[in-house]
């Protein structure tokens, strides 16, 4: 099998634990995984945000000011910058009353990718079609 697909499902809220940060950083590490694989092999991640996990995507996070840590927002922006597909559950955004314009983007960094707000059914499809499923 040349390409292996992984769905990284981020469902934990930011800053309560390391979990969601680790979801981002493990997905981003896809950039260099080819170093350890044979020619033509790759790992293709899709990052999905459901439940409280969508709170990781709010923009204007003040983590450095309040906690002295790099904000998870920057991990989100870096994920877009390296062209990760990032699916955000529309129903959960509605449930939390979060409008799309409150979510991060990485236009200022020159990223082409944007968050994809999708119905949960699409996230379910991504989870069912991937080779491996990783919950964070």
């Amino acid at each position: 099998m040349s390409n292996v697909t992984c769905a990284f499902v981020i469902q934990r809220p930011p800053y309560k634990s390391e979990t969601s940060t680790l979801g981002f950083t493990h997905a981003i590490s896809w950039q260099v995984v080819e170093m350890l694989l044979e020619d033509g092999q790759n790992v293709i991640p899709t990052v999905c945000f459901v439940g409280e996990g969508i709170l990781n995507l709010l923009k204007d996070q003040k983590a450095m000011d309040n906690y002295g840590v790099t904000s998870i927002e920057s991990h989100g922006k870096n994920s877009l910058l390296v062209d990760l597909d990032m699916l955000v559950c529309k129903e959960d955004l509605d449930r939390f009353g979060i409008a799309e314009d409150r979510l991060l983007d990485a236009e200022d960094m020159g990223a082409d990718k944007k968050l994809q707000i999708v119905p949960y059914a699409e996230i379910q499809k991504a989870m069912e079609s991937c080779n491996h499923l990783l919950f964070f």
Binding site: H26, S29, V32, V33, L37, N42, V43, H132, F135
Partner: peptide, 17 residues
């Protein structure tokens, strides 16, 4: 680093998190 994990995932029949 984390890409070790992804590389092992690539060669695995099953992955448990």
């Amino acid at each position: 680093a984390m890409h070790w994990y992804l590389a092992k995932i690539h060669g695995s029949d099953r992955v448990l998190h």
